[in-house]
């Protein structure tokens, strides 16, 4: 495999791992949501993300071209923590509902801009995945927007919780816009886009929602997460993978 292909694979893994790891966290909400409609909604968002992850990881395996090819489950279940290329935002533990809506608002807005840009990818499979996914994440963004409005402009308690959630999530947002090596290569090749090129649109949308929701944009955080795209994660990641992978790994070679 040429070095060019490695960066193509890494780029796809970054996109696929974001979707997979966030789906894992959203799956934890089922039966714990504030109302039954929300069990369905968060399950639905998670389900869309599992679907995106399956397509993206399958494509990553094809481009990698290992012999034998690594399929979606090889990549999801048999890689170790340092090989996962998701941003740290999506791996953070499930907290309260305001925290989830803050995370979903930023993440779905980022995904919305990302997939819209990937419609023109020179990787035709990736462009096809983006064409389907952009419609899905449009709904996710709308769902998060509606909830941030309700919570921000709801009761004093919900306003306070929503404001606190924005502050808690904020240190993980900058990483979405970081131009890592694989992304720089992908942008040059027309396979992908520079994450930093999406940042203004993402921040602009979120700022509009926060204003309408009577919320205050959080101050720049003292620190921000970095390194997810190179496989450097927060300590919670190992536990997430242990839970996700243990059954598959307990039965090597088995079919499910």
């Amino acid at each position: 495999m040429s070095s060019t292909d490695v960066r193509h694979v890494h780029y796809l893994l970054g996109l696929g791992d974001d979707a997979l790891v966030y789906a894992q966290r959203l799956g934890e909400w089922l039966t714990h949501a504030p109302q039954i409609e929300e069990d369905m909604a968060l399950g639905n968002v998670g389900l869309d993300l599992v679907g995106q992850a399956r397509s993206l990881l399958t494509r990553a395996g094809e481009v990698e071209g290992a012999d034998p090819l690594r399929d979606e489950d090889d990549l999801a279940m048999l890689r170790d923590e340092r090989e996962f290329r998701n941003v740290q935002l999506v791996e953070q533990p499930r907290a309260d509902f305001a925290h989830e809506m803050a995370r979903l608002l930023w993440f779905s807005t980022y995904q919305r801009e990302l997939y819209a840009a990937l419609l023109d990818s020179t990787d035709e499979t990736l462009a096809g995945i983006a064409a389907k996914a952009v419609k899905e994440v449009d709904y996710h963004r709308d769902h998060a927007t509606q909830w941030v409005l309700r919570l921000g402009d709801g009761t004093p308690e919900s306003h306070e919780r929503m404001q606190a959630a924005l502050v808690a999530v904020h240190p993980y947002v900058a990483e979405l816009g970081e131009d890592h090596e694989a992304a720089r290569w992908a942008a040059e090749q027309g396979v992908g886009v520079l994450p930093s090129s999406l940042t203004d649109a993402v921040n602009g949308y979120v700022a509009g929602v926060l204003e309408q929701a009577t919320l205050t944009p959080p101050d720049p955080p003292r620190w921000h997460a970095r390194g997810g795209r190179e496989g450097v994660h927060s300590e919670v990641m190992g536990y997430l993978l242990a839970e996700m992978q243990h059954l598959h790994r307990s039965h090597p070679g088995a079919t499910w």
Partner: peptide, 11 residues
């Protein structure tokens, strides 16, 4: 859900 043995089964 979080432990399903394949992504297809998880979905």
């Amino acid at each position: 859900i979080t432990r399903a043995p394949s992504l297809r089964r998880k979905a």
